[in-house]
Design a binder for these strands. Sequence first.
DNA 1: GCCTTACGCTGTACCGGTTAAGTTCGGACG
DNA 2: CGTCCGAACTTAACCGGTACAGCGTAAGGC
Lengths: 338, 338
Amino acid sequence: MVTRERPTLEAVARRAGVSRATVSRVVNGSTTVAVAIRDAVNQAVEELGYVPNQAARSLVTQRTESIALILPETASRVFSDDLFFPAVIRGVSVELEAADKQLVLMMAGSAASHDRVERYAMAGHVDGVMFASMHGADPLPGALARLGIPVVCSGRPMTPAELPVPYVDVDHIGGVAAAVRHLLATGHRRIATIAGPQDMVAGIDRLTGYRTALDEAGLAEHVAFGDFTRDSGVQAMRRLLADDPGLDAVFVASDMMAHGALQALKDAGRRVPDDVAVIGFDDFEISRLSDPPLTTVRQPIVDMGRTMARQMLGLVDHRRDVPAVVVLPTELVVRASA
Amino acid sequence: MVTRERPTLEAVARRAGVSRATVSRVVNGSTTVAVAIRDAVNQAVEELGYVPNQAARSLVTQRTESIALILPETASRVFSDDLFFPAVIRGVSVELEAADKQLVLMMAGSAASHDRVERYAMAGHVDGVMFASMHGADPLPGALARLGIPVVCSGRPMTPAELPVPYVDVDHIGGVAAAVRHLLATGHRRIATIAGPQDMVAGIDRLTGYRTALDEAGLAEHVAFGDFTRDSGVQAMRRLLADDPGLDAVFVASDMMAHGALQALKDAGRRVPDDVAVIGFDDFEISRLSDPPLTTVRQPIVDMGRTMARQMLGLVDHRRDVPAVVVLPTELVVRASA
DNA sequence: GCCTTACGCTGTACCGGTTAAGTTCGGACG
DNA sequence: CGTCCGAACTTAACCGGTACAGCGTAAGGC
């Protein structure tokens, strides 16, 4: 394998019979270049197959034209059957592609990879960093922001607000309230919930929404916890049934867990929605296809990704009109399961 | 937002009272540094929060410590319900993580993004490029390889072998042959196939396997084409049933299409496997859960990713023992659908 | 006691771009 | 006809590291 020397600006300059600086100006589309010279340079670029060296360029411009999306999860989790991450990534991709920025996707599920990601971002490899699916009070967003690196989070960060980081989130509480109200309106009174992990804002807020709504109706709560995976939904549903065989409805804090719950209910011989009504949260594509089709709270995940990317693009361009907080609406989608 | 100046080697050197070169050697873990000086430097690094500038480092070392995985598909396709890409990515991630290399994931579904990816790779942003899911005779792998950039493909490239590019693939033909033999052994004689796209090696080879096996048995072939998506499986199955209502088995070239086929068969009132036996190809997790559980040809997708990454790591280290071609085995997994 | 050798550090020339400052030159103007 | 001006190019100074040649120092050999 012959490593053909990559041509440099210098080589192009020599061939075109001009200086390095002039070639640089042509390559970067400066206006103050005579047409004849511009053509000569472009021809030389073509002939040599010149491509600018990004490292050299970044060194002086302090820009890389690429933006990281950090998922503090293992690759297995990101690419499991959960459809949350894909949707976020899709949204982010669309916007960055339009802005001709490169997306750098980083999984940081382990402590080692978390460190590596930190070094990577701090080394100036990217112009900005987006976070999705944060657990607990991760110090990384704040640390990067303090270094002057633009940061945007998907989901309100749990870090104390010493250094506010821009974020985009959805109206968890409003969505859950709508779901519980729907259950109440259809006559259910023993309404349990399968809550998400309590180290994540999405888990916390959705449980809060459930508690608030039940409180208002003067009903007792009944909670089991899962971690947003399908399996954990199965387990949690079994526990709920064991604790209260007479429950007549359950609000599940994610669609994947809801599918697990449907499975567990089926295994237990309960009919949905006749014996037990089920409402999920997400509105994944597959939730239209389940048996029965899942009633769920729709959150605009792709839009979250897009919005987050737009905020980021605004920040790296130092625009003044970048909103620090965006909260997108949720919506109850009624199908057959409740 | 105060952009705190990032400290440079120079600053660390001043603070530690040594030269820039010495700091560099400490940072890069050279052995020939006196302990006292090493400690002093490390302390200065700590105090200033020094992180090396990657652009400057790459400029001289010609290395970036990151490796690209290019998926010539749109983000929507990569992150659809298809589980092929996630598995490849997972495998690649595991190996690169162990080698402390950064994975840069790039979708190149459109012509514009294809160009951008090309520029990105040629600009020396990454030390090597892996490809998955290639369509037709993409010139990019060859072009990069010609420039001396290490390239590995998942799936035998369709480009003419002027410049052989290392690749890892699975034994499509053997797997399909096993599937068809199983159908023959269980008494089926009108065996159709839903083939994959014929601009991809996986599509071509699996169809070849089917044709060869049927030929050997002296049976007539019956082919409909899909594009590996679930929907295309539904459509193709309908066409097959319309053409030959009496078919008694179908080999489907991907699990997603197979699930579509199961759906179409159910809609048409056919029982699986009693009326029509179905065999897929992939062995996704969800194929154990379908109704009925899918008999399928297992291909080790995660292993493909891992193997591809290992080949790549060998190439960037200029190791001599990197196999140019690896073909992983496939295996028939018999469940209830055939 | 002097020379050799090895060790460990410093000085500095790059890497390949960008960009501010400097130079050249033709044309407009007084 | 001399001066001034602006357009368009060149020169050269960075950006922040790495790596190699070179040099001072201390230990070792005779």
